[in-house]
Design a protein around this nucleic acid. Sequence first.
RNA 1: GGGCGCCUAGCUCAAUUGGCAGAGCAACGGACUCUUAAUCCGUUGGUUGAAGGUUCGAUUCCUUCGGCGCUCACCA
Length: 479
Amino acid sequence: MAEKTDDAPATSEQEIYEARLAKARALREKGVPPWGNGHPVRDAIGEVAAAHGGKTGEALEVEKPAVSIAGRIVAARSFGKAAFIALRDRTGQIQAHVRRDVLGEAAFEVFGLTDVGDFVAVEGPLFRTRTGELTVRAEKLTFLTKALRPLPEKWHGLSDVETRYRQRYLDLVANERARETFRRRFALVRAVRAFLDARGFVEVETPMMHPLVSGAAARPFTTHHNALDADLYLRIAPELYLKRLVVGGFERVYELNRNFRNEGISTQHNPEFTMIEFYQAHATYEDLMELTEELLRRVATEVTGGARVPYQGEILDFGAPFRRVTMTEAVRQVAPETAADDAALVAAFEEEVEPTLVQPTFVTQFPTSISPLARRNDADPRFTDRFELYVAGREIANAFSELNDPIDQQERFARQVEAKRRGDEEAMDYDADYIRALEVGLPPTAGEGIGIDRLAMLLTDSPSIRDVILFPLLKPEPK
RNA sequence: GGGCGCCUAGCUCAAUUGGCAGAGCAACGGACUCUUAAUCCGUUGGUUGAAGGUUCGAUUCCUUCGGCGCUCACCA
């Protein structure tokens, strides 16, 4: 480039860094801040492309639409006295033609100190190149930010899994697939909220730090509040707080936020994960099956463009009504000789049935013994009015008609406490205030939790939960 | 936590039976005012994850450790 900053070739990481640092100093000597302040940008690249992408070169020649854009230089092709640079912002990518005779000597020297990875602003008219590409003629170029570290390789991108997770910013800069995955995740979250908002649900926030462990079967993280000298647990579920709100008159509530479970990490589990829980008074678990079908059909369509979603070689169909089967019946179909007790039933279900449930399937009527917060079935109190939704062999949602009988709930809690005393680390605590709330009166209510990360995996065709969590938990980076 | 696998230049990857650590991209110098992974000429860049061991000689074989991935267990 125009300015020689160092006679020695720079190629190791340290040397590349120092060469770029030298360019930053050279910029500063020219009066150009290498890490500039906010600079007004009028146009979004995607909107420029949308507004003018259909016009011919001749039309642009007449109109000369002036644009003002800014972005990261993601590619550069230099010809000595001119160059093409590809600029990317949040909305898209476009190339700019930088010419010495257009820009002027001094500004072109500044341009000579730019690298791929730097941020610049460009102003000038649009035109079409000989090959027809929509291009900005850089009549003004403002240097915005120097990147001291190089971007990953331009063709193969960044594929090292550990680097992609630890330095997600590099993954996002380098891999369009990663950008699209997270765009979809955010669209999914938006779509879920919009769906429930439209049905009169209110989004609420309940505590993340709990004095008791409840709402799910899981081992908690513990922490401590100094001023109160109180041990607290990071919540494993918001369930009991949300039902307190229904008692208080918020008949339709949801909370879409993080839960924390102190358990193993896998392609399906991250210690902190996002779940939506929602509660609807005067509904039953059967109402929620219908709501869930509608919700997933809507969300899948909004996020992926259709209700039939490709996932790891299968097509998941969220368009048709989902299959419904009781746990007992599902087990009977694959393992007719399974013993009648709850533990054997659940074990057979998890081992034999779960992996086979590829298309969306509601499994209903879970044993009361493993459903301490769910209402018993009126006809058979051994089971509860509960369902879990399975897709691609995984649990995606869990819902039930809520147990609103304070007497029964006291007994269920007592059984949990007894299990905990016997060594069940995932058993719940006895929540006396929750009993008090039920005694004030919880109207008949149904509630559901949907694993947002797992749903995001399905809608982005991602095999690992880490692919849909921006910063998955990893071991601390070794020195 | 158990089992299996991987770790080589900034990035993506090679390296015969154990025999001088290489390529492309990026970078640096030069040419080049319409490129699209620009092209052409030239130049660099390495504690082969770490520490030991075997060997005349280790990227290669062995041990330990670290990180990551897959998987099993646990869970959503």
